[in-house]
Design a protein around this nucleic acid. Structure first.
Length: 216
DNA sequence: ATCCCGAGGG
DNA sequence: CCCTCTGGAT
């Protein structure tokens, strides 16, 4: 396989091989534990600059203590902060969870909206989090760009940009809509297991022969 | 550009 | 010790 492929063809190879390495739907590939759209939204807000494993440690207690947006909106801020402390940024995240829950109660009849323009109006919800909820909980095409997707996209030569929104535009143009959500999750899984931030393990990477950054 | 912030790995 | 982890708001 030639290394000088067009970005379009290289993206095709990436989609194909990652699907073989990490089979399953977007919902099945998502590592954040959740029972419904609201819980996924909460877990995703907590996942900022934090491992999913740590998020999954706190969410069971969190969802047992506060069931649904109405209960979470009424949580004692100090108690909430203590529950989520280990995920980091705990004051800001607690404020986001309280504000997001209140907004669902007040503006969205206690339901998580599907429209991206609605989702991003919620406190603590940016484009990445909105895309996670859409693609995983609702099965709507969306391509979340997080730290892993950004790093792998640049290494694989699928984008030259730094801005996550521009990276999203580039990737969406290279890949069929139906693949967006699963591709994002697979890039995350691959970024965690093989194409790690510090010392990528190119020797055991199924994409090494088409990767402009591969060092063997 | 900067701040928010804890925890684990190397 | 430094880097990284499914970012968002100012």
């Amino acid at each position: 396989m030639p290394r000088q492929l067009s970005a379009k063809r290289r993206a095709g190879v990436v989609v194909e091989r990652l699907a073989a390495s990490y089979p399953g739907s977007a919902a099945e590939l998502c590592a954040l534990a959740h029972g419904d759209p609201f819980e996924l939204l909460v877990a995703t807000i907590l996942s900022a600059q934090c491992t999913d494993a740590r998020v999954n440690e706190v969410t069971p207690r969190l969802f047992a203590a506060y069931r649904g947006p109405a209960e979470l909106a009424g949580a004692d801020p100090a108690a909430l902060e203590e529950l989520i402390r280990s995920t980091g940024f705990f004051r800001a995240k607690a404020a986001s969870l309280l504000g997001m829950s209140a907004a669902l109660v007040e503006r969205f009849a206690c339901e998580v909206p599907q429209a991206i323009d609605d989702l991003v109006t919620l406190p603590g919800v940016g484009r990445k989090t909105a895309n996670v909820v859409r693609s995983v909980a609702f099965g709507v095409p969306g391509l979340p760009v997080d730290t892993h997707v950004k790093r792998l996209s640049k290494r694989l030569g699928l984008t030259v940009h730094e801005d996550p929104e521009k990276i999203e535009t580039d990737l969406c143009a290279l890949v069929p809509k139906a693949e967006w959500g699963a591709l994002s999750l697979r890039l995350i899984l691959h970024g965690r297991a093989v194409c790690v931030a510090r010392r990528p393990r190119c020797g055991e990477c199924v994409l090494a022969d088409v990767c402009p950054s591969a060092s063997l």
